[in-house]
Write a protein that binds this DNA or RNA. Structure first.
Lengths: 198, 198
DNA sequence: GCACCTCTCTACCATATGGTAGAGAGAAGT
DNA sequence: ACTTCTCTCTACCATATGGTAGAGAGGTGC
C-alpha cells in the first residue's frame, strides 16, 4: 500500500467507529479527523462511504473466518471441545477489540451489497458448523437440538454481549475485561450443560 | 389525546420504523409520510426528534414491563416454569411486532437520556430476575450459574434473534412465524437443559 | 530538466435533515 | 359574533453530509 499506510489506518479507524457507534452515526468527517487526514483523502482511497463500509466488513469477515478456521483445525475430536474452541476464537478478538463483532451486528441491520458481503462471508462458516453439529447429534455425541438455534445463540450472545459493554448496561452491568473472561467461561459451561448428551 | 389520535399514530409508526431501521436511519420526514401528516405535525406533538425517541422508548419499556410482570404473577412456583413464562411473555410481542425489541437493542447503542430512560425502566426488572434466580440457585432448584449470564443470554437471544428476521440472515435463515414459534420452544428446552439442577 | 505518478490538500456543491415562524381551519366557550 | 384554543398546514432556514473539481507537493524514471 502506501508509505505511511494511510489506507490501513483509515480501515482501522473506520472499523472501530462503525462498530461502536454504528455505520449511520459516523460521518466521513469524523473518521478523517480520527485518522488525522482530510476527508478527501478518504475518498481517494475509497470511492464512497459505501465502499469503505464494504471494505471494513470484508476485512472483518476475513479476520473472523481465519480465526474460526484455525480454532477448528487446532481443536480435538470431542464436539463440545470443538464448539468451545470456536466460541473462544470469536471471543478473543471481540474482547480485545469490541468493535469487531459490533460490526457483525451492524451488518445484520444494514441492507444492500455491503451487508451481503459480510453475511456472505460468514454464512458458509455457520452452515458448516450446523452440518457438523447435526452429524454429531446423529451420532449421539450432542444432545439433540436445533443446530441453528445453537449457532444463533452463540452468535447473539457473543455479538450482542461480549462484544459491546454498552449492550450490557441494558441488564445493569458494565463488565471489565476479567469479568468478560469469566462470562466467557460461564457461557461455555452453560453451552456444555445444554448440549451434553443424555 | 386528539380526536383522531394523531399522537398515538405517530408513536406507533415511529416505534416500527425506529425498531426495524434504527433511530439514526429514520428521518422525521419518513415518519411523517408513513403517518400521512406533515413533518411539522410531528414537531407539534413532540418537541424534537429526541423527544419522540424518548416517548417511543418509554412506551416500549412500559409495555414490556407490564407483560413481564403479568407473566410472573400468572406463573407457578417452579423456577423453570417461571423463567419459561417470562421468555414467552417477551417473545409474544416480539413475534407479533418485530420492532418492539429491536428498540431495546437500539437503546443499548444510543447514548443520552433517551437510552437511559429505557434502560432505567428495564433494569429493575432484570435485577429482580437476577435476585430471584440467585435465590433459587441457593435452594438448589436451579443449576448454579451466573444469573446475569442467563439474563443476558435470554436478552441477547430474544432481542437479536426472535425480534428481527434480518439478524437471522447472518446465519442464513429467514424464519416464518411458525418457525419462530418452534425456535422459541427450542430455546426454552435449551434453557431447561442448561438450568435444570443436578 | 521534464514528464509522470502517487498522494494529500483547499474550495466548493447538491441534498437532506432537524427545526422555526407563522398562518389558517375548525370547534368551543362566552 | 367574537375570541380562544387545538391542531395542521406551507414556507423557510441553518447545518451537516456525501461527493466533485482541481491544484499542489514530493518522489521516480528518462
Amino acid at each position: 500500500m502506501a508509505r505511511t499506510d494511510t489506507r490501513g489506518r483509515i480501515l482501522e479507524a473506520a472499523t472501530d467507529l462503525f462498530g461502536v457507534r454504528g455505520v449511520d452515526a459516523v460521518s466521513l468527517d469524523v473518521i478523517a479527523a480520527e485518522v488525522g487526514v482530510a476527508k478527501q483523502t478518504l475518498l481517494y482511497w475509497f470511492a464512497s462511504k459505501d465502499d469503505l463500509v464494504q471494505a471494513v466488513l470484508a476485512q472483518t469477515a476475513a479476520q473472523l473466518g481465519v480465526a474460526i478456521e484455525a480454532a477448528i483445525r487446532a481443536s480435538g475430536d470431542d464436539p463440545l471441545d470443538r464448539i468451545e474452541a470456536v466460541v473462544k476464537a470469536v471471543f478473543r478478538p471481540a474482547v480485545r477489540r469490541p468493535a469487531l463483532l459490533g460490526l457483525v451486528r451492524e451488518a445484520s441491520r444494514l441492507s444492500g451489497p455491503a451487508a451481503e458481503r459480510l453475511n456472505g462471508a460468514l454464512r458458509p462458516l455457520v452452515e458448516r458448523g450446523v452440518r457438523y453439529m447435526e452429524g454429531e447429534m446423529d451420532r449421539g455425541l450432542l444432545r439433540r437440538a436445533d443446530p441453528r438455534l445453537v449457532a444463533a445463540l452463540c452468535y447473539a450472545t457473543v455479538t450482542g454481549i461480549a462484544t459491546e459493554p454498552e449492550a450490557l448496561r441494558a441488564v445493569g452491568w458494565q463488565p471489565t475485561t476479567s469479568e468478560l473472561r469469566r462470562l466467557r467461561s460461564e457461557l461455555l459451561a452453560f453451552l456444555r450443560a445444554a448440549l451434553a448428551p443424555g
